[in-house]
Design a protein around this nucleic acid. Structure first.
Lengths: 403, 403
DNA sequence: CCGATTAAATCACTTTAATGGAATAATTCG
DNA sequence: CGAATTATTCCATTAAAGTGATTTAATCGG
């Protein structure tokens, strides 16, 4: 158990990120305002901004006027400062998105990939990334990295299964390393819920939250935790399996061996099965459209699912609140916005918990990213990795410098 | 939302604490070993140790021999480096403990205090502290602080209630400030479970754990979370209410408004009620002895409680694991050791969870502190506050320097 | 028994990020 | 238009960690 010390170099890296993060969250912002927000000296901020501008990460937008004194120069994140790819592969559908570091989507490619052989998928990802770079005229050197999201649990580089068996051939494959070799770009890998939580934190509903739980409603139910401004992955990297919170003691049997798990009541797969008993465990874009249509037409099969899902989620949310006392619970995943809204409406009102008296934030917040969430969340992984002032950065050894 | 930067001063404080923490956890240790453990330069460690010795926090114990090279000088924490008081007040019993910074108990006073008026209690605490200082011949200036533990939830300085009404007169009292004024010593206040978790982390079962959940079995059930090496108090400081995890959907009604909460099945109060229906909601030392005796004589009323408590805790533990993926769950509180052991024996085997395949640590660990846990945990609060290399220390403004 | 070897700890000096104070720049206010 | 105000930069200082050589004190091997 090593507890590493800090030196000036670490503090420097950390401060660069503090400044970037401050600008990202509050842009446009002047040097003087950053000074006040960070507690660093004006001179220090001036130096740091000079570096960040030099590196192309920050740009001046305009001069503020109207007030006394020398007009402040407003700064914000330069969208051309870097690019990232977000890749999601889930149940036969591959989605690749190219975004800039300011969160703008530059390109988007969706491919049906019935073949599940890992090598074929990874090759296809590599090919698609190369094509998109050419089409958008972005040099590979300007790409910070590639985020990959797969609905599974990872430990180190490897996929491990809980409950349902993993896709054949994928288990125990050094996924990150393999893709990194093919792409010649840094690859970050994450489960869907945590990636979505990071995405919401960077650009969505979590922008002003430091402590929240994200509930990801997808084929199953996943959870992503953001605690003290950082994703929390647990002691062994497998936190957030809130799909297996028991919301109905002795209820429906679950593949995990218990009974009454949240996932047995609230998943999108179950919604699709409710609409069409023969539905296989695949979620395509038009499946989501069908759910939205069913809601629009008040299809009783969907409404039943909504009620069941809401009841289970209500229980789970109260337990999450009592355990973690988050600022809010963000509910998201692949559901279309109207369905998500209807679901939340049915979850409310929530029973009493430690969060009952919080007046600053609503207890449930709808995620903002929508059905492309997995890939969008994936795309934020390299941004988060390169920008966020993670405290432990102070003694991280293998940090890629962007500045 | 301020995100503060780091400077050399912060890094210095942080490094002093990294060194202290390293010694604390791995003593005896030589300068060279600290160098390797912290990644800092040998010269830096030499300088830091010089300061810490000067301040009386660290002492040389002996020279190691047997190996080649200049013999290493072994260092450890100097128990006389400082003192702290731990105070627990719960259900009419006041316990005050004086410990040194190495965790040694120097004095212990237990008082029956039927009067629940806050002022009377605080006065009595102040008087007892003064008496103990005189008796043990410790100067007030050498006391780092006083930890106070009360079985309740706090927000900022104030006691807030969930479910059961708080003790009359205590609610909304600025408890910390009042006691601090009376004592003229820094006062830290914490709920029982978090204090116990900190205690176990410093001196007990959690010494080698950075991520664990502590389940506190007392009059009710509390939870203390230790995440990334730090206590986690949630977005609003009220995390860890795991007594209200629902382990039996639709089960016994709870004061929180839900049904089937863990606390309705596993608390010590319930054990005492099982043994004696007229038992009031007070737990004295001899009550705990009675529980131990009941176990020794295999009293069926206690065994029934044990079975129910174990079943509920089993459910709760699996949910905690699935949600947080801790290195372990530490089970403790005020139960006598044999009862705790019996309880854990009945909880096992645990159902499947994300923790099922963890081979490094057992999934449940018994706490080591025993029935004095609340006060012992309280006593560790100032030590933790003064020693632990909390990362956010890097930009904390109001830190009391000990070095 | 003694020189070679090894490892710990220290000495003297360097590096570097942040900082402090003075100076300068560009506005609005009266 | 000058005073006031605020933002930003220039120049020199500070302090914590780091570097490389040196000293210290033990064991090992002949």
């Amino acid at each position: 158990m090593k507890l590493l010390g800090a030196n000036m170099d670490h503090a420097k890296r950390f401060n660069r990120r503090v400044v970037l993060e401050t600008i990202r969250l509050q842009a446009p912002l002047s040097r003087a305002e950053i000074t006040r927000a960070t507690g660093l000296a004006p001179q220090t901020i001036s130096n740091i901004i000079a570096e960040l501008s030099e590196a192309g990460l920050v740009r001046s937008v305009n001069r503020r006027s109207g007030a006394r004194g020398q007009p402040a120069v407003e700064l914000d994140i330069n969208p051309d400062g870097g690019f990232t790819f977000g890749v999601s592969f889930s149940h036969g559908v591959l989605l690749v998105i190219l975004t800039d570091v300011a969160g703008g989507v530059r390109d988007r490619v969706e491919i049906d990939l019935p073949s599940l052989a890992p090598d074929a998928v990874l090759d296809r990802i590599a090919r698609t990334v190369a094509e998109m770079l050419t089409r958008q005229n972005v040099a590979r050197s300007r790409v910070w990295g590639v985020g990959l999201v797969i609905p599974a649990i990872f430990q180190d580089d490897h996929l491990v299964a809980l409950g349902e068996t993993a896709l054949p051939g994928w288990k125990d494959l050094p996924l990150r390393q393999s893709l990194q070799n093919k792409l010649e770009l840094p690859v970050l890998i994450e489960n869907d819920a945590t990636a979505a939580a990071i995405g919401e934190r960077l650009y969505g509903a979590g922008k002003s939250l430091t402590d929240f739980a994200y509930i990801y409603v997808g084929a199953g139910i996943g959870g992503g935790l953001f605690l003290r401004g950082q994703p929390y992955r647990g002691g062994y990297g497998k936190s957030g399996e809130i799909g297996h919170l028991v919301t109905d003691t002795g209820g429906r049997p679950c593949t995990c061996g218990n009974r009454g798990c949240l996932e047995r009541y609230a998943s999108v797969s179950l919604a699709l099965k409710a609409l069409d008993e023969s539905h296989e465990d695949v979620i395509r874009h038009d499946d989501l459209d069908r759910i939205a249509a069913a809601l629009a037409s008040a299809d009783p099969r969907l409404l039943t699912w909504l009620d069941e899902a809401a009841a289970s989620l209500r229980q789970a949310i109260v337990m999450i609140e009592n355990m973690l006392d988050p600022q809010a619970v963000v509910l998201g995943g692949v559901l279309p916005q109207p369905v998500l809204t209807a679901l939340i409406a049915r979850i409310l009102p929530l029973p009493r918990s430690v969060s009952s008296n919080n007046e600053d934030t609503p207890r449930i917040i709808a995620a903002e990213m929508g059905p492309d969430t997995p890939a969008l969340g994936a795309a934020t992984l390299p941004v988060f990795d390169g920008m966020s002032p993670e405290l432990s950065l102070l003694f991280k050894q293998d940090v890629v410098e962007r500045i």
